[in-house]
Design a protein around this nucleic acid. Structure first.
Lengths: 190, 190
DNA sequence: GGTCTGGGTTCAATGAACGAACCGACGTGA
DNA sequence: TCACGTCGGTTCGTTCATTGAACCCAGACC
């Protein structure tokens, strides 16, 4: 892999981490996994990445032990990608990046708000619950839409992610059918 | 920029952050800036990135308000790149990445240890001082070499970073002279 | 049998990264 | 004054990665 060639000689844990998650699309894939996305086609639709790149990144993440690929139905055979313990440990990275993006990238309304599911309090700057004074694990985080979020996205996965939801709860397959309802006026090439 | 084209439509603060710091080399440049590297040639030597890429990244980071480029001597005119407030706010991101790299990338001894400069205690998993129970700002962090670090690197900047040092203290220019002393046997092309 | 869906692979074109060479302003020493 | 070295780049040809469109295959459905 391209990163490895140069980053490998870096005597640094940060470089080691970036070898695994530093490539284009990789952290967005992990983010979507936290949001509950598990299936290839959902990653594809939500990210808009090229299919080949998505396949390569998912494979690399599985190889690195960040995602686990597992069969969830036999006929037809279908696999899903779920975060392993090592993947879940990336939550602080995503949280820090999101916090920085919210606070420091100019001209941006907050896209989402993150609350402690147990008590409803919005999380503090380092991902802790200010009320309970605990570091909240991703499974206990509830994600709610924020002021800057498009409330009527065309893309069905983005639409499914609009409702308040706990992190890591899988997207229900219903999200896929929703899309086709308004397609009565579908374009039909000659 | 390449990232912008696809990441811009992402309704997400993480994607916004990655537009700024998600490209190859960018986070390593910021890391080095925390370590005290300020000059083009030092970044170049320590990172091993191509000169053109380094110049482009530094310019992009200045444009994004992460680094500030400022003149530190007039003759000859020389500029240095120092972290702005927005750049300093990236510390949690680097800390989280480093913590993940230390803990989750297999087969890696810790490269460096980070201590609270005020009391000497090693920082906890989220960058806090377990003794003082405060979140330690980067300026109060002392970096010490860890077990996995090469103790005799050829590269002079890496050598200068071996000694225990506080983050953000600039590399003294002496680091540059050190290199030439053992070069009495320098190769001399015909 | 024909068609649809999910999950890919293949391929040509494009874009980015690489590394070596070059450049210009300035300082330095002979 | 003139050669030489340093610093901070830029230029350029080659290599590598990404992109998007097309294709493919297995199984379900009808």
């Amino acid at each position: 892999m391209a990163l490895g060639k140069d980053y490998a000689q870096q005597q640094c844990s940060i470089a080691r981490a970036l070898e695994v998650v530093g490539e284009r699309w990789t952290l967005l894939i992990v983010r979507d996994a936290f949001y509950g996305v598990r299936r290839y086609s959902d990653f594809l639709a939500h990210l808009g990445a090229p299919r080949a790149v998505l396949a390569a990144r998912l494979q690399a993440l599985v190889d690195a032990g960040v995602l686990d690929r597992r069969r969830y139905q036999e006929s037809p055979p279908r696999d899903e990608y779920v975060l392993t313990g090592r993947g879940l440990a990336l939550w602080p990275v995503l949280w820090a990046l999101g916090a920085w993006g919210r606070a420091e990238v100019p001209g941006s309304l907050p896209m989402r708000a993150f609350h402690h599911a147990d008590c409803g309090t919005e999380l503090g700057p380092s991902g802790e619950c200010p009320a309970c004074r605990v570091l909240v694990a991703p499974a206990d985080v509830e994600m709610r839409p924020g002021a800057g979020l498009d409330l009527d996205p065309a893309e069905p996965v983005a639409r499914a992610l609009l409702a308040p939801r706990r992190l890591l709860t899988p997207l229900e397959p219903a999200a896929h059918q929703e899309r086709r309802e308004p397609s009565r006026t579908a374009v039909r090439p000659t």
